[in-house]
Design a protein around this nucleic acid. Structure first.
Length: 262
DNA sequence: GACCAGGTATTGC
DNA sequence: GCAATACATGGT
């Protein structure tokens, strides 16, 4: 992993608090910690206990990729397109909340909404930096306050999620350990959380690598490149395959020209 | 100024 | 079941 290939992980639509600065460094927040990654400190970052875990350095992505390459030529192309991509270990609540905000939205605006949410409700951690707001904090907010930050119709959804997490009605660490279908059903008890957002929360927030978010892009990918196949076909690391394919598909829209959009 | 965006809930066949 | 529609709003 180097400064360029970090984009495969930090700019592939799984997280919303990282930005590349003009000098090429990466600036971001995770779990209440601020980090600026430069060419110089990158090795030390990946050696740090917390950040190594965040970047999932303990998992053998090379081996998983190799297996994918033997399964299907299109999957091989997608895996080779972004070979350094990893699924981050993000804060579960932040991921759930962020992907509730992601619906019917674009990545740039999601980032803006998350940023304003942090500025307004996040705990200050250092000069000008704020953590992602705690569920307890947002649970006490008013819907109109969230709408004022540009959340739109998603404001009520965020509020419902915050209340259910803060009250303990939904315990994300318990959800992490549930069978996939039970976990999905539990998350779907939140207003504004359907199959896609639930799987995003599971994959990106709870590191459930068997979850397989099916958005418009993945529907196109599946129809075009894997007709008749279902997510389980990709195996226990289906979520990683999904991320390779999502990123590859989004950057090759010509694959779907002339196909029906779903 | 349309058109679209990593969807979901509701309604009506 | 499945298609149609509303839901807010900023980016392009």
């Amino acid at each position: 992993m180097n400064m360029e290939t970090l984009a495969q992980t930090l700019d592939c639509g799984q997280c919303f608090r990282w930005n590349r600065l003009p000098d090429g460094s990466w600036d971001g927040m995770a779990c209440g910690r601020h980090l600026r990654i430069t060419e110089k400190n990158l090795p030390a970052v990946l050696d740090d206990g917390f950040w190594a875990g965040y970047f999932d350095m303990g998992l053998d992505y090379g081996g998983i990729r190799k297996r994918f390459c033997t399964m299907d030529p299109a999957l091989a192309r997608a895996a080779r397109y972004a070979p350094e991509m990893r699924i981050l270990n993000q804060d579960p609540w932040e991921a759930l909340c962020s992907f509730i905000l992601s619906q019917c939205n674009n990545i740039k605006r999601i980032k803006g909404m998350v940023s304003r949410l942090c500025a307004e409700f996040g705990r200050p951690v250092e000069e000008g930096r704020r953590a992602f707001p705690a569920a307890e904090t947002l649970a006490a907010a008013r819907e109109e306050d969230l709408r004022a930050l540009g959340c739109g119709f998603r404001a009520a959804y965020v509020l419902d999620a915050a209340r259910k997490v803060a009250s303990g009605e939904i315990n994300l660490e318990k959800v992490r350990r549930m069978p996939l279908e039970d976990a999905r059903a539990k998350l779907a008890g939140i207003r504004g959380v359907g199959p896609k957002v639930a799987d995003c929360a599971l994959l990106y927030g709870l590191h459930r690598l068997d979850a397989f978010p099916m958005d418009v892009w993945m529907k196109r990918v599946m129809q075009t490149l894997f007709p008749g196949k279902k997510p389980a076909w990709f195996g226990p690391y289906a979520g990683i395959a999904q991320q390779y394919l999502f990123h590859y598909g989004r950057n090759h829209p010509e694959l779907f020209r002339g196909k029906r959009n779903q």
